[in-house]
């Protein structure tokens, strides 16, 4: 197993007190696998990504374990973690313009990872940078190397970010909304590039997005997050065909489909609750049309619907929904 995240919780200090942003997140990523993390804005997707490499604001409280290639990196010192960052685990961010240093040339920025993590000579590094520019589909690499981010288009900049991330051939790539800030046509090109890279390497990828289309395009498995918790997890096909959690169903309903002329697109009423005033039971209950009494008092545990398909919802119980009646675990919880 490449990455094993175990009960990861994150609290951030806001207005003088700590509030929980992530609540006991657990998931795994295998080698060569692309895992999508989806959810609305503010549900903790990006914070999950940043927590893995501890790229967090200073006053952040992190609990739980992050194991990378069998090593417990959540216990690593800052210096030890710096050796992994950009080397074995790379990241790509949402806005490629602000994510690149405006005063450094493209070449210098790609080269930096090599400078930090390899013993390559200057000549070798230059060769590798040119190769990387080529790999991410950028023409006239020789000129590009001396240009600055503001001279490039959004798509080119994101390709540069990918080149930076790929420089040291990482085992894990974390992409935080890599296509959100781009034009639709450019989005498609970047996703194509991601798929190409995926095929060529045995890299594990975490793809954070709010766009179900992106998930369908590149992911093998999906994790659906809501208000700092994982609510459903399963293979892409399974989730698209057989979504269980009402939140996942809502997300899928809100995608416009070709050929269907609906009067109105599906939307989920309400917004994600703020971490400061988190509810006791299921966090989605207030926006859920199936909400029952138990939903408002006890948080539903993660249960297996099928092999690999899990959800946290009182509507279902262990081992598929064959049995429609209230399952024993629901009763048990209700009795508390």
């Amino acid at each position: 197993m490449l990455l094993n995240v175990n009960e990861l919780s994150l609290s951030l200090k806001r207005a003088g007190k700590y509030s929980k942003i992530l609540d006991q997140i657990s998931f795994q990523v295998e080698e060569g696998e692309t895992v999508g993390i989806v959810g609305e804005s503010g549900c903790g997707k990006s914070m999950t990504a940043l927590s893995l490499m501890r790229l967090l604001p200073e006053k952040a409280l992190l609990e739980g374990e992050v194991n990378f290639q069998g090593e417990k990196i959540s216990g690593y010192s800052k210096r030890k973690l710096e050796k992994i960052r950009g080397n074995q685990v790379s990241m790509i961010f949402q806005d490629p313009l602000t994510s690149l240093n405006p005063l450094h040339t493209v070449g210098t920025q790609i080269e930096e990872s090599l400078l930090l993590h390899t013993k390559m000579t200057k000549k070798e590094r230059r060769k590798r940078v040119l190769q990387l520019l080529n790999d991410v589909g950028l023409p006239r690499a020789e000129d590009l190397i001396d240009e600055y981010p503001h001279q490039l288009s959004g798509g080119m900049r994101q390709r540069i970010m990918i080149a930076i991330a790929m420089a040291c051939e990482p085992q894990l790539l974390i992409c935080d909304e890599p296509t959100t800030a781009l034009d639709v046509t450019v989005q498609a090109q970047i996703l194509e590039l991601m798929n190409k890279i995926k095929k060529e390497t045995q890299m594990g990828i975490i793809m954070i997005t709010h766009d179900m289309g992106v998930v369908a395009e590149v992911c093998d498995r999906v994790i659906v997050m809501y208000a700092g918790k994982i609510v459903e997890e399963g293979p892409v096909l399974e989730i698209f065909q057989n979504p269980k959690h009402p939140y996942t169903q809502g997300l899928l309903d809100s995608i416009p489909k070709l050929g269907q002329r609906k009067e109105k697109l599906g939307s989920i009423p309400g917004t994600v609750p703020a971490p400061e005033n988190m509810v006791v039971g299921c966090r989605f209950a207030d926006r859920c049309s199936h909400a029952m009494d138990i939903c408002r008092t006890v948080h539903p545990p993660m249960i297996g619907i099928k092999e690999n398909h899990q959800t946290a919802c009182w509507l279902y119980e262990e081992g598929d929904e064959k049995d429609g009646s209230i399952g024993s675990h629901k009763l048990e919880a209700a009795l508390h």
Binding site: L55, R85, F93, N101, P102, H104, E112, L116, I164
Partner: peptide
Amino acid sequence: KSDYIRTAHAKGAPENRVLYGHALRN
């Protein structure tokens, strides 16, 4: 606070390099 400083950290640049190599000139 800017994004490219986060990128520098994500590349594995040590604190001093981030401070003097990336932040100072800006």
